[in-house]
Amino acid sequence: MRLAILDSSHGFGTKALFALIRTVSRQPVLDVVKLVKYRPDFYGAPMSKVTQEAMRGPSAWSVGDRELMAAFIAKTSQCEFCTKAHLAVAQRAYGNGKTASALLSDSSMTTIKDPLRATLLMLGKLTSEHTVNADDIRAVLAAGASRQQIEDALAVCFSFNVITRLADAFGFSVPGPEAFEAGAKYLLSRGYR
């Protein structure tokens, strides 16, 4: 982590929480947790409300689909931490029937069915080119997504267009797969609160 305050300047109660997390999970505290718990009134608390609604609020998209969107947005942003973190959650959410990392390994994502595939491609353009136009949206509608599904997907994209930037700018450490598995288990059971 490039700012020492994000590593070690949390309050006493938060440090105690981190010690508990390390003991129970037997894994290091993920840097994203350290970020949202640092001066949470400024960023972590209000951002968590946005992300919780986008990722766990009512939607025609499943939790697995939204986690796959998060992983794809992160992959497009070249954010290794968020890609691995949310592939792990998507994998767990989908269960054994799908291999989340394999779904994204093909750049045209031919194994993913519409309208999710078309939605992912639109989110990828929005993330890499910073904008989309009406024709891009029409392509997603033509693939079978409803207007509300597109709005819901854009909410996911907003959250991860923020989080991936912060992960890269603050230099999140990328731990081993066991730490991401522990994080995925938590995010599926507790969400982003």
Binding site: Y43, H130, A134, R147, C157, F158, V162
Partner: peptide, 22 residues
């Protein structure tokens, strides 16, 4: 934090405008 949220906001607003147009 402000830089990240600002850029994400511009992207989100652009996409919502495209959705409205479509």
């Amino acid at each position: 934090v402000c830089a990240a949220i600002g850029q994400a906001t511009r992207q989100y607003d652009a996409a919502l405008a495209a959705l409205e147009s479509a």
